[in-house]
Write a protein that binds this DNA or RNA. Sequence first.
DNA 1: TTGTATGCGTTATCAA
DNA 2: TTGATAACGCATACAA
Lengths: 336, 336
Amino acid sequence: MTTIKDIAKKVGVSVTTVSRALNDYDDVSLVTKEQIQAVAKELNYVPNRSAQNLVTKQNKTLAIILSGLEPEGGKDNIVYGLLAGMYCYAESINYEVVLFTMSSALQTEKTYVQFCKEHNIGGAVLNGIRTDDPYLKELVDSDLPCVLIDVFIEGKNTSSISIDNVQAAKDAVTYLIENGHRNIGMINGRREAAVSEERLEGYAEGLKQNNLLYKDSYVVYADFLEKEAYEKSMTLMSKYPEITALFCASDMMAIGAIKAAKKLGKKVPRDISIVGFDNIPIAEYSSPTLTTIGQDFYAMGQKAAKQLVKMIKGEKVKKRVLLKHKLLARDSVSML
Amino acid sequence: MTTIKDIAKKVGVSVTTVSRALNDYDDVSLVTKEQIQAVAKELNYVPNRSAQNLVTKQNKTLAIILSGLEPEGGKDNIVYGLLAGMYCYAESINYEVVLFTMSSALQTEKTYVQFCKEHNIGGAVLNGIRTDDPYLKELVDSDLPCVLIDVFIEGKNTSSISIDNVQAAKDAVTYLIENGHRNIGMINGRREAAVSEERLEGYAEGLKQNNLLYKDSYVVYADFLEKEAYEKSMTLMSKYPEITALFCASDMMAIGAIKAAKKLGKKVPRDISIVGFDNIPIAEYSSPTLTTIGQDFYAMGQKAAKQLVKMIKGEKVKKRVLLKHKLLARDSVSML
DNA sequence: TTGTATGCGTTATCAA
DNA sequence: TTGATAACGCATACAA
């Protein structure tokens, strides 16, 4: 591997000069600078990041910390979108992106903070981490810039990004009501998830604003899982046949609900209307195509990376950023 | 940040001893070792990877080099599977994974080799890179261990992983023939892709083995794109109404073909049977559900990482690894 | 069993 | 405008 030393020798200058020439300092004569750059190219010189990092203590690396990367996961494309968005911005400013997951934290008994220190991480984007994760607390209590997706936690140096989940849920419910539905059930996600609470709130608000009664019994929790949603919605629809619409806090759960409806001999949307959440790729191709709340995870990843970099540079950022969502009217809802 | 120096000072030994204790050498007394480890923990010591990398020249980082991370990409979940599989193995042996894409290569004018050198990458997994990419040539010509997904290229230190695409295509076609189909069209992918050629070969072989005539006119190329496949298959079906089955080289193209069939008033599978390739998440949820060739990208990513690590360690590896595929019989094919 | 000294490749400080 | 030298944090050859 060629180093600045090699270049220095070949050109006949000191390593200092080479370093400065390569970093385009202006206290080096144009002639030598050009000469050095030419030789660098000729020798295929590539700076060694480890050495750079070691001496500059700069942290041009962003981490994305996830709950896990499961073989069967990824159907929702959320991680992909987030990662792609982050990467897109990071690369544009010559930053790197590395991955870390909770599972590896458990396995190696390495905390997020440790991982970040070890790799000179400048800041981290977190997604899908449980709010009661002790490693999370350690991280947000540390000085390290963190951007949290979908949850709002006060921390030393943190910021949050999400859509307005309350409003989005309200939009979904309102849309159902506009379509004539009066008895609307909700298939919510994991009880502990912040978004679940927010979406429930939006659901309740939507009902209230239209003078409909909120009923606890119309709400079930299905952990964001298709199968669980299948079972829970089956029970719900059987028990309360007056329900004509279901608002689901995720598309995968909506898919489960559609299956349940079919199993019960109900046609979607003729007998029961269903709205999902997220707009995962499957939503557009399922049968019927799924009316849902669209989130732009790519944009979210991009924004997260941007925030992070600002925070790394010590600039002020909004503690909480709300991105736009969009109701996508497709075929799983019909006018009553 | 605490360093081994701090620990050394506190314990009252040299940095050498600390280094050895922390790396669990056995030429350090148990007492001091335990003492050192205790203090390290107390001071929240985390080794600095940059420093380690710099001195050991070890390259405990794997790269995954992709064609790009598009906002609208990822539907097929291939990148996710590959990445998850790689990461899973990498983390188990305390390796890292970083991303690099062709798009960033273009943008920064940085070649894959440069990126890898710069980051002390031990080896790289490549997916979706065009075989005529000059940067690819430079990479496989270099000493850096590379594992190529889906393409077989001889290189200085390379190895390839894929399923047996010829056999898989043959399986698909044979399945259609077993279901009574005699006039089978093929929607192939990008002309230049190695897998396209292999799948075409399997398609032809399947026909031949069953004494059916291969017809050039029954094969169209649709660049692995849904829309393109929609148009091309529309033309194909219109021009040759005797065709009763379509073998598509990707699921997204199969989805396009199904749409085209519907548009033409043909019912799938009653009027036309369709087989896809890949088993992307959508395949299971589309209407009708898609009969397809299942590839396990997670397993592929894992295997790729394993190969890579072996190569990094200088062990011999197979130049070409073939993973198992599986025909998944679902609802898009019917007996003629 | 432990410590001294050296070097990895780079940048930064200071002096020339 | 340039160069000598130190420093970053760590691992290792060698000496003690």
